[in-house]
Design a protein around this nucleic acid. Structure first.
Lengths: 210, 210
DNA sequence: AAAATTCTTGCAGAGACTGAATAAATGCAG
DNA sequence: CTGCATTTATTCAGTCTCTGCAAGAATTTT
């Protein structure tokens, strides 16, 4: 690697043009402003104008980045989607689809903890306070679900358009991950990775009564 | 507001007062108008004003019944929620939670077909055309998820606040049902009940690769 | 440096949604 | 049936979200 200097927590590939970097930065600024402000004042206590002002852009620009106020809070970056599908398709081929998803999701959950120690809990607490955002969350994952189902289908040689298995698997797994993430914020007993691991075990055993 | 709880799950319209019956009727009129119009002209081609006009009530009244345009289309009636949780809790006690949910959901899916032959397919086609409505759908089920998790917890003697099993089970099952309902509209191969049955089998066996 | 591309911004406007006041309908005595 | 209390519907005014458009500023390319 030609990377001698260690970048901060934010890894910004210097290979991108200035324009692209600025875009990433405003996007991030808007998201952070949205999450911070809403966590503080509640969803109705913050207008898009406030968010845009806090990020030092015009209100119109906000809507160039996010189609909705909700998406600024719970939306996934397209980059994340790409990373996850890539991670799934590059798991060893002898793993079952469920095992592959398990590995990727656990790895992901483990990454979340240290990286954005601020933002992630804030997001979850907001979702807990405004349940309809859980749905907006699910909405932003829906395109992603499609992509993931495609990837899973490719792993086991199934056409997701013909065989429902990939769609069912992905839907179940993501629903469980979402549910437990929010719950975990509420009842922080064991670390999230552990809770998720047990849930995947339960899934793999057919959700038997404990 | 002193509503004596109706012990039966069967519909007893005669016992309700005039006021209550009128409310049910406007609610239903609004929902039907919303679904019909949106199925015809698309979500953006229909305003709440249009819907209210079609149902012959004022615009403001629409919002007395539904908090959102989306909810008028995909929202569940509180009554449905009550029926479902009741059905689950009155399943034989020796069934596993997953089996109980399976039975109730299949029974439900079988009912849907003949009853509202018009509305149900329209709803699904709308959801397929406007993916974000799938999320709104999930949102309207979220309060319901809580209630169902509670019921499941009671069945197997678990406190849903302490043990994640009920929440996980319900989340997975509902996600699968939602996903397959929409898919089924898209690829109407086998009857929905059959497709759902196979998915429940798959779930019970730990989602093994086919 | 000029041209081409892309991003930001302000503006005007449609539509979603809310609170409050008023009118109408319904339920319930007497 | 008549008056009174409660619930529901409507009107009205207003805020906020979100979109299209056109002009201006920044970045990239030639």
């Amino acid at each position: 690697m030609t990377q001698a200097g260690t970048n901060r927590a934010t890894m910004e590939p210097a290979e991108l043009g200035l324009r692209e970097r600025k875009k990433q930065r405003t996007r991030r600024a808007l998201r952070i402003a949205a999450i911070r402000l809403v966590a503080e004042r509640g969803l109705d206590g913050v207008s898009v104008d406030d968010i845009a002002a806090a990020a030092e852009v015009s209100t119109r620009t906000f809507f160039n980045y996010f189609p909705t106020k909700d998406e600024a809070i719970v939306g996934l970056d397209p980059e994340d989607i790409r990373e996850i599908t890539e991670a799934v398709s590059s798991r060893p081929a002898d793993e079952s689809p469920l095992e592959a998803l398990r590995a990727v999701m656990l790895q992901r959950a483990a990454l979340v903890a240290p990286e954005q120690a601020d933002l992630w809990p804030l997001r979850l607490s907001i979702i807990r306070r405004h349940p309809h955002l859980m749905a907006a969350n699910a909405a932003s994952w829906s395109s992603y679900e499609h992509a993931l189902a495609e990837t899973v289908g490719r792993r086991c040689g199934l056409d997701p358009a013909r065989d429902p298995y990939p769609a069912v698997l992905v839907a179940a797994v993501l629903a469980v991950v979402r549910t437990l993430s929010v719950r975990w914020q509420e009842f922080p007993g064991a670390p999230l990775v552990e809770v998720l691991g047990q849930a995947f075990d339960s899934l793999a055993r057919g959700l038997p009564p404990p």
